[in-house]
């Protein structure tokens, strides 16, 4: 069942990030897959700026290098809670789906806080080894980023 497949994909995706297996993250995408984290105000108004906007697995690998090697930041854990997917359409080998998400942030020695809340707007492609993201846009409601956003959503 397609919805189950998308839900399982989202669970694996969130687990990879929450378990800090960042090097696995680009592999959830097709090679020329697109990943965006975009404020709702930009998305709703058709303004193109995003917080993060990558157009290939290569750019995502460069981000992983950035978050593990080059960007200085106070460390934190994330916890992704992803709601059930809504499968909104199928076209050939493509699947359109959306799901609500909440990401919590916990800094060592501190309380947990609501970090980023929004929805995934996804286009999957069916590949021999399962679903891959042709594009994932994380449209977030949170009007303010709590200082910085380092890890993918």
């Amino acid at each position: 069942m397609l919805q189950l497949a998308v839900d399982r994909f989202n669970a694996d995706y969130g687990a990879a990030l929450d378990e800090r297996r960042f090097e696995d993250w680009p592999g959830f995408f097709a090679e020329d897959g697109c990943y965006k984290v975009q404020a709702r105000e930009n998305f709703d108004r058709g303004l193109p700026l995003a917080l993060l906007a990558f157009e290939s697995q290569g750019m995502m690998k460069d981000r992983v290098y950035g978050i593990t090697q080059t960007i200085y930041h106070a460390p934190y854990y994330t916890r992704h809670v992803v709601g059930p997917a809504r499968v909104l359409g199928e076209q050939g080998d493509r699947v359109m789906a959306q799901a609500s998400y909440a990401v919590f942030r916990t800094r060592p020695g501190d309380t947990s806080e609501v970090y980023n809340v929004g929805r995934y707007i996804d286009e999957f492609v069916r590949a021999p080894d399962g679903l891959k993201l042709a594009s994932r846009t994380c449209v977030y409601d949170s009007e303010m980023v709590l200082n910085s956003l380092i890890y993918p959503i």
């Binding site: 404020a39 105000e41 303004l47 009007e143 303010m144 980023v145 709590l146 200082n147």
Partner: peptide, 11 residues
Amino acid sequence: QLLGYNRQRIP
């Protein structure tokens, strides 16, 4: 030409 906004809260 307006491209968009990013907002952050810095303590």
